[in-house]
């Protein structure tokens, strides 16, 4: 079958790629676009290291034909990392020493982002359930769960500060 052109939104920018049928989003991100934060752990949906957000929902990019995201909104770790400094979730992972070799971290951060967008104050149980599809071989998981808790607080505090300054301006 012939290649075809697929366009989608990647972190707020429209990208256009030419692909063979059934080329995965993971392969397009890493090999065609050079977005290598999305990791390549197992290529069969078993490890979670390739997790990206599609329209805000966590998806395994290794199981996703890129044609399925045509016209959709794709968010990777690169998309949420500010030009200066770190996203609050990244900072929380750093502070909690929640990565050692670091290979699982991008997937963990993206799942955590989707969780906190959906549930800004998750319980311990909700965090653990959200992360069940992501394998970490180094940390023992507890530091990651701790990081998500503190990220939730940081995001909450930042939102409070935003509301506060908006209130100032309103007055």
């Amino acid at each position: 079958m012939a290649s075809r052109i697929v366009t989608f939104d990647l972190g707020g920018r429209e990208v256009e790629v030419m692909v063979r049928p059934m080329t995965t989003l993971q392969s397009v991100l890493r090999n065609q676009l050079g977005f290598t934060a999305t990791k390549d752990g197992c290529r069969q949906g078993g490890c979670g290291s390739c997790t990206v957000l599609v329209n805000g929902q966590p998806m395994l990019s290794c199981l996703l034909p890129v044609e399925d995201v045509a016209g959709q909104r794709v968010t990777t770790l690169e998309s949420i990392t500010p030009a200066e400094g770190l996203h609050p979730i990244q900072q929380a992972f750093l502070d909690a020493h929640a990565s050692q070799c670091g290979y699982c971290t991008p997937g963990m951060v993206m799942v955590s982002k989707a969780l906190l967008d959906h549930d800004p104050a998750p319980t311990d149980d909700a965090i653990r359930h959200a992360l069940t599809g992501n394998i970490c071989r180094c940390t023992g998981y507890r530091p990651i769960v701790t990081a998500v808790h503190s990220a939730a607080e940081a995001v909450h505090d930042a939102a409070d500060a935003m509301r506060g300054s908006a209130g100032e301006r309103a007055r």
């Binding site: 752990g41 197992c42 069969q44 949906g45 078993g46 490890c47 965090i127 653990r128 359930h129 992360l131 069940t132 394998i135 071989r137 023992g140 998981y141 507890r142 990651i144 769960v145």
Partner: peptide
Amino acid sequence: RDFSEYLMPGTLEMPIV
């Protein structure tokens, strides 16, 4: 043969350490 079948504890199995 793969991560789906090779068993390891995950976030739900972690004890107090």
